[in-house]
Nucleic acid binder design. Structure first.
Lengths: 340, 340
DNA sequence: TTGTAAGCGTTATCAA
DNA sequence: TTGATAACGCTTACAA
């Protein structure tokens, strides 16, 4: 059932049907009502999106490209919250959301990239793919990733990390370990070497590391490379492995600086399993401010980033067609029981 | 940059370019290589999806329609897990995922429904919308929702609820309350009346209620209507309100049967706030088997449904073009600390 | 292996 | 308000 058939069936021209759906001002209200109703009855619910897109050059679809796999991203609380914010704004603007992953590199995926009117890219997207997406000339907003040529929304990772580490290293605590995110290019949990620490690697994890290290420096605390864990995937399983290693290390850390709440929450559980009291035996800090962080025992002291708001803002900038605007959102420390 | 321009630039015919992307066997491997490389250099990454879809009648896009808002669904652990499973299988099959919500009813949304090659519907979708989606003749698989005319994936909610209630009501415990999901058509947390209990209402919550009630009957336990809470939205906020009411009710419940893990986890927290020991003062059970349920204190005894697997299976059935196949997945009880 | 051309369902323009 | 028509970018049958 297509527009032409509907026009025939209703005894009006195709132009009138098209206008009924796209330009209400081009016909009388009654006629429009009648057309919409009768068309629906015939099983015609509006112009075919492919044809309409081809003709208009606009699909009302927004591509949301995630740096990780879709299924990982949907399981990660931070990515989920970002998507919630994005979804809210897109729905409000009558846009549809097409999920893409920068890990998929098939010709089908490349073809799909021609459909959206604009893109929202989340996380560390390979330069090559970013270039490809940008070259098609549609609006792009990137989140949690820096690029001078694009509108972007970021948080000040280094500052947030600095602030919380400074808070954690207050007093006389000195034995400190860091449970990091993906810090090097290796797919298993491990400790860093000094060479790893000195390496350049453009990820938010590096900014957080820099913040931690600066605070440690200022407090006169030394954190050796082998007290820093690389956690390639931010999930419970990896986090528990690293937390167990860190908390059984001798001398035992009095402070555990974690680069994500997921990691910190796992660390709290591991500490409990090991019979350690938090924060008396070991203080633990997180990063992100996910909802679960409020409800652990003890609740988590963390750096709150408003992920939902970040998603909303990014989507809004995309809707507005913001050009080359770089936004950096504030973070704030939320002090709870895991750190006195 | 389109296929024709690329053909001109490379000095070959449009058919050859098209074949290079779609039918590798129609030209020599070297020529194909050259074309793909040169085309990419020109900024052409493959056929325009709208045009390709229009011509082929296939978009490689699958529409995933959620009964709730996108942003709520992304925040709900069960829906998220389902989406993870779906995403995995779709990506494997080189399909793209377009998110839709049955709550959105604009002409844009209706238009968007013309794009996908098939639909996966999750949750209680209004009959009218289900009909509309089905009328366009594309494959449809529904999840957590029953309809004789469609392939569907469900779990046996009544049986799962029956089993866990039977377990919970073992021994001499009799004072019981139920924290339900959406049981009536009202948007605030409240208790039921007897009339509400007797009402017909096609939701999984009703099956779970039936299972609870049957087990209670068999145990000789009476659960009054005013010991059953209606929780219209499955989130922490609503759950806490209901849990607080239930746990401060006199006589105080010894058993709290919750229709979701999100609710049960909130109930555990509320119990702790009230100074009640779980399970000594009040035993609490959940439903779903979300990851967090393993890590609460105490960990939650619940009915495990494998939501990720459910999503995978549904997507597989959709990919296979299964016709009118009704699958009911097993649930299993996982006994942990919240119920002895 | 190549070139040609019809047609997918729409929108927009133009003249009536 | 209508009807006719070109164009959007592609795929594919067919002939070369």
């Amino acid at each position: 059932m297509n527009l032409k058939q509907v026009a025939n069936a209703l005894g009006v021209s195709t132009a009138t049907i098209s206008n009924a759906f796209n330009r209400p001002d081009q016909l009388s209200a009654k006629l429009r009502e009648r057309i919409l109703r009768d068309a629906a009855e015939l099983g015609y619910h509006g112009p075919n999106l492919a044809a309409r897109t081809l003709r208009r050059g606009e699909s009302d679809v927004i591509g949301v490209m995630l740096s990780d796999s879709l299924s990982y991203s949907l399981s990660d609380p931070v990515a989920s919250q970002l998507l919630q914010g994005v979804a809210d704004v897109l729905v409000e603007n009558n846009k549809h959301m097409l999920l893409l992953s920068s890990l998929v590199d098939t010709s089908e995926q490349l073809g799909a990239e021609s459909l959206p009117d604009g893109f929202l890219l989340y996380g560390t997207i390979p330069q090559k793919i970013l270039q490809r997406v940008m070259r098609n000339g549609k609006p792009v907003v990137i989140v949690d990733f820096e690029s001078a040529e694009t509108t972007s929304v970021n948080i000040d990772n280094e500052h947030g990390a600095y602030e919380i580490a400074k808070l954690a290293l207050k007093g006389d605590k000195t034995e400190t370990a860091i449970l990091g995110l993906k810090l090097i290019d290796f797919n298993r949990v491990c400790r860093l070497t000094q060479a790893d620490v000195d390496m350049e690697y453009q990820e938010i994890s590096r900014s957080r590391l820099a913040g931690f290290m600066q605070a440690a420096n200022e407090r006169g605390v030394n954190i050796a490379a082998d007290a820093i864990w690389h956690i390639p995937i931010n999930n419970r399983h990896n986090a528990e492995i690293a937390a167990r290693e860190a908390l059984t290390k001798m001398p035992r850390p009095e402070v555990l600086l974690c680069m994500s709440d997921v990691i910190a929450l796992s660390a709290i559980r591991v500490a409990r399993d090991l019979g350690l009291r938090v924060p008396e035996d070991v203080a633990i800090t997180g990063f992100d401010g996910i909802p679960e962080a409020e409800h652990s025992q003890p609740p988590l002291t963390t750096v709150c980033q408003q992920s939902i708001e970040k998603g909303k803002l990014a989507a809004q900038l995309l809707m507005e067609g913001a050009v080359n605007k770089q936004v950096v959102l504030e973070t704030r420390i939320v002090q709870r029981g895991s750190l006195r």
